[in-house]
């Protein structure tokens, strides 16, 4: 497993732990075991798990496992993947801060960062997928 995947997957696991804990708290509050004020964290729960966990894990595992360019050049340029790592995590944290402090522009900025991350990662992945098609032919 390459180092960048280790970063993606470990961060995904951290968000997963936080998001699951919030989810359990929300459910406890539904059963009246915790105060309903926890409900204000509901959007954080969704953000942490959908983007921080599922999307981030998918990127981390696909970077590791999808076809490589060649034995020598391995997986191709790391720069767009590094950008994706920073932008995705910056994005998730910014969106969460936006929800916490009720700043709509932060939520917007975070979503722009997340989109940038996925575009950057797609840019990295494209030649890896094309090359594997050529090789098959």
């Amino acid at each position: 497993m390459p180092r960048l995947s280790v970063w993606f997957i470990r961060l995904a696991l951290i968000y997963f732990g936080l998001g699951f804990t919030l989810g359990a708290g929300l459910l406890m509050a539904k059963g009246s075991f915790l105060p309903l004020t926890i409900w204000r964290y509901r959007p954080l729960h969704i953000e942490l798990l959908l983007i921080g966990w599922i999307v981030q894990l998918a990127i981390g595992v696909s970077y590791w496992i999808l076809p490589r360019l060649s034995e020598a050049n391995e997986r191709g340029s790391k720069t767009p993947v590094r950008i994706a790592l920073l932008a995705l995590n910056g994005g998730v944290l910014t969106v969460c801060a936006g929800f916490l402090f009720e700043r709509e522009w932060l939520v917007f900025a975070g979503r722009v960062l997340e989109t940038g991350a996925v575009v950057s990662y797609t840019f990295h992945l494209h030649p890896r997928l094309m090359y594997s098609v050529w090789r098959k032919r």
Binding site: F16, G17, F20, T21, A24, L27, M28, K30, G31
Partner: peptide, 23 residues
């Protein structure tokens, strides 16, 4: 309500258990 609280606990334990197992 009690069963819902228990279900939250069970799912949370599974999540934390997985993190510990895979980390």
């Amino acid at each position: 309500a009690w069963l819902l609280g228990f279900s939250a606990l069970l799912q949370w334990l599974a999540g934390i258990g997985f993190i510990l197992a895979i980390w």
